[in-house]
C-alpha cells in the first residue's frame, strides 16, 4: 500500500509536469488570439520525431547528435515550426473562427499522413537519458526512470522562465495584457500580430519539450498527437480557458487522477475518470478553476 502511494506520487508528479507544458501552450494561444489550435498535438509529435531523427544513428548515421545538443535544437525547431504555422497560415484566416479551426484540423490530420509517408507507422523509439532509479531499498516498489525526473525538472524550469517572462518583463506583460484586452493593448501601442506570433513561438517551444519527453518515455507514433490534444482540452477547461496558473494546477490534478486510476483501478480506465471530471466541470463550473485571469474578450 505504502509502495503504491509512493509510485503514485512519483509517477503522477512526473507525468503531470509534461501535461502542464502541453496545456500551457494550448491555453496561451487561445487566451491571446482566441484560437483553438488543434494542430497543437501535431507540434508535440513534431518534437518527438525531430528529436528521434536527430539522436538515432539508424535514421541518418552522420547526424546522430548527442541528446544534450539534440534537445535544444529540437525545441528551437518546433518553436520555429509553430511560429511559421501562425505566420504562413493562421494569421491570414484568424478573423474567421471556423476557418481557423478547420485549418488547424487539416494541419493535424496532414501531419499523420506526412509522418507515415516519411517514417512508416512503426513506433520510433529514442533515448534522452537511459537508466532508472531503484527505490526498492526505500520500500517503494517503483523504478522511476531518469528521463522522467528530467522531464519534471525541465518542465518546472520552463514554467518558471515563462512565469518570469510574462509577469516581470515589459515584453511578456504585453502578452498578458493583450489576453485581457486586445483593444487596450493596441491603445498602449502593442502590435497584436507580433504578440500572437510570440505566443505561437512559446507554445511551440513548450510543445517541443513535451514531445521530446513523450517520445523518450514511450515512443513516437503517427497518431501520438491525439492523446495530448485531448488532454490539453480537458486540462484547459478544468483550469479555466486562458489561465496559465489554471493549466498547471489542472495538469497536476489530471496527471494524479490518471495515475490513481492506473494504480488502484486498472490501466484500461486511465482516461475515463478524467472525462467524468471534465463533464462535471462543464456542467457545474464551465469557467474552470481560474477562468478569470487570462480571458480573451
Amino acid at each position: 500500500m505504502l509502495g503504491d502511494i509512493g509510485t503514485l506520487v512519483l509517477q503522477g508528479a512526473m507525468i503531470s509536469a509534461i501535461y502542464a507544458l502541453i496545456a500551457i501552450g494550448f491555453t496561451m494561444i487561445f487566451g491571446v488570439g482566441g484560437i483553438l489550435n488543434l494542430a497543437h498535438g501535431a507540434l508535440i509529435m513534431a518534437g518527438a520525431y525531430i528529436f528521434g531523427i536527430l539522436v538515432r544513428e539508424t535514421t541518418v548515421s552522420w547526424i546522430a547528435l548527442h541528446p544534450a545538443i539534440a534537445f535544444p535544437v529540437t525545441v528551437v525547431a518546433v518553436a520555429v515550426l509553430s511560429w511559421g504555422l501562425y505566420q504562413v497560415l493562421v494569421r491570414w484566416v484568424e478573423d474567421n473562427v471556423v476557418i481557423t479551426f478547420l485549418a488547424t484540423v487539416v494541419v493535424a490530420v496532414a501531419s499523420t499522413e506526412l509522418v507515415i509517408y516519411l517514417f512508416g507507422d512503426t513506433p520510433m523509439g529514442m533515448t534522452l537519458i537511459s537508466g532508472a532509479l531503484n527505490l526498492e531499498p526505500f520500500g517503494i516498489n517503483a523504478r522511476p526512470r531518469y528521463v522522467q525526473f528530467a522531464g519534471f525538472v525541465v518542465s518546472w524550469i520552463a514554467i518558471g522562465l515563462l512565469w518570469f517572462y510574462i509577469t516581470k518583463t515589459d515584453d511578456g506583460r504585453s502578452i498578458l495584457a493583450a489576453s485581457m484586452s486586445e483593444r487596450g493593448a493596441q491603445l498602449t501601442g502593442v502590435d497584436l500580430h507580433s504578440v500572437r506570433a510570440k505566443t505561437w513561438l512559446i507554445a511551440g517551444a513548450l510543445a517541443g519539450i513535451a514531445g521530446i519527453f513523450l517520445g523518450s518515455t514511450g515512443s513516437a507514433t503517427p497518431l501520438m498527437w491525439l492523446n495530448p490534444l485531448a488532454l490539453a482540452f480537458i486540462i484547459v477547461v478544468i483550469g479555466g480557458i486562458g489561465s496559465i496558473k489554471g493549466s498547471v494546477v489542472a495538469a497536476y490534478f489530471i496527471g494524479f487522477l490518471e495515475q490513481f486510476t492506473v494504480t488502484f483501478v486498472g490501466q484500461g480506465f486511465r482516461g475515463i475518470l478524467s472525462l467524468v471530471v471534465l463533464a462535471i466541470f462543464l456542467l457545474y463550473l464551465p469557467q474552470g478553476l481560474y477562468g478569470r485571469e487570462f480571458v480573451h474578450d
Binding site: 504585453s174 485581457m180 487596450g184 502593442v190 478569470r292 485571469e293
Partner: peptide, 16 residues
C-alpha cells in the same frame, strides 16, 4: 482597461 491588472500595472502599461 486591463481588468485583472492593478491600477498601478495599468498605468505602467501606458508607459511600456
Amino acid at each position: 482597461l486591463f481588468p485583472f491588472f492593478s491600477v498601478h500595472e495599468n498605468l505602467l502599461m501606458g508607459a511600456q
